[in-house]
Amino acid sequence: MDTVTAPSSPSSEALPRPARPLLEITRIYAEPAAAAAERGRQILARWPEAEVVEVPSHWQIPELHGDERNVRRWVRIKTEALVLGTKKTLTVRPNGRSADFIAPSHANGCAMACVYCYVPRRKGFSNPVTTFTNIEQIAAAIAKHATKQGIKLEPNQCDPDLWVYDLGENSDCSVDAMISDNVRDLAELFGALPNAKGSFATKYVNRDMLEWDPQGKMRVRFSLMPAETAKLVDIRTSPVPERIAAIDDFVEAGYEVHVNFSPVIIEDGWQEKWAELLQQLDASTSPAAKAQMACEAIFLTHNRALHEVNTGWHPKAEQVLWRPDLQEAKVSQNGQANVRYRWEDKQQYLREFLQLVERYAPWCRVRYAF
């Protein structure tokens, strides 16, 4: 009699590890007023099993902010923690690069973990999403400012016709839209404003946003870089091919879609990698998407403090980000001591990059590059 041998189970090492959800909220730190607001109650209802911890301020959470031991739990905290706060400073600030103005933040922090992100430099060691629940006040401040601006009389590189307000300076709106209706509320606000549009950069494809009606008044800027580099430094983001594939869908849904070539990182073979990416973008986007598209190109700026944080959880990425042989000290517009590629070398890199865009994606207007 033949012996039947049951198939052996594959080893755990052979099985692909399932991707962990971007958000698995188990603890919500909440200012009392933020939790009591209508938006706060809606968010708490989305995660009814989460532990709610009352905090005096979204900036004063010792177990999240300023504890260097959190470096070892960097991604776990981003996945499991959420903070609810009240946005107290409702100032609209001038910009002139990505947008005419920077809107008051509806959120701060991110569930993704891009290694070069500047926001952790302020919060320190952990940077989960803080959602501001006083969205009515935030929207009212934007509307009041736009009304005072009146009609845009002269075109500029931000937009020829409308005042552009950046909505995601300290967060990623595509992820914020998974947590609350703040971003949708702002999209509806701009749909009603005759002289303004919203704008945000993103590294995450949230296809639920395709069901909205942006009426051409919301500019989505998909951040792109060579896929191989993104796998190293864009942690927990949508893969670059997925971002490119979403462009036509968002254009068809009524969004204005631009791209951010950001950050441009100087590494071995960077020109060839960017040439390949630009060819992929050219082959994958429709004539309609190309006709309305423009781009920004931003070269890497880094920071010693962030370098030290990253060394504690992702040292491999720092091999391409922290390059003292190529970089020099730079004081940023907000007064931080950063490092950038040496100025004269950077001018050459910039020329080479723009030549690549002109060769492989000549239809893509460069709004600005630095």
Rank of each mutant, 00 (worst) to 15 (best):
I179E: 10
S180N: 14
S180K: 06
D181L: 06
D181K: 13
N182Q: 10
R184C: 02
R184V: 13
D185N: 12
L186K: 05
L186C: 08
E188T: 13
E188P: 07
L189H: 12
F190D: 00
G191D: 10
A192V: 11
P194R: 06
N195E: 09
A196K: 08
A196V: 07
K197H: 13
G198I: 11
G198Q: 05
S199W: 09
F200M: 07
F200R: 10
A201H: 10
T202P: 00
Y204W: 00
Y204G: 00
V205D: 12
N206F: 05
M209R: 07
M209H: 04
W212S: 09
W212C: 02
D213K: 15
D213G: 04
D213E: 14
P214Q: 04
G216Q: 11
G216N: 13
M218L: 15
M218F: 03
R219C: 13
V220R: 03
V220T: 02
V220A: 02
R221D: 04
F222Q: 01
F222C: 01
F222I: 08
L224T: 07
L224K: 11
A227Y: 02
T229K: 00
T229E: 07
T229S: 10
A230N: 01
A230Y: 00
A230L: 06
K231I: 04
K231Y: 01
L232D: 04
V233L: 07
V233I: 15
D234W: 00
I235T: 14
I235L: 15
I235A: 11
R236A: 06
T237R: 01
S238M: 03
S238G: 05
E242K: 09
R243S: 01
R243P: 12
R243L: 02
R243K: 11
A246N: 06
D248A: 03
F250R: 06
F250H: 08
A253D: 03
G254T: 07
E256H: 13
E256T: 15
H258Y: 14
V259M: 02
N260Y: 09
F261Y: 14
S262K: 12
P263G: 13
P263Y: 12
V264K: 05
I266K: 05
E267T: 14
E267P: 00
W270D: 01
W270I: 13
Q271K: 14
K273G: 11
K273H: 14
W274A: 07
E276T: 14
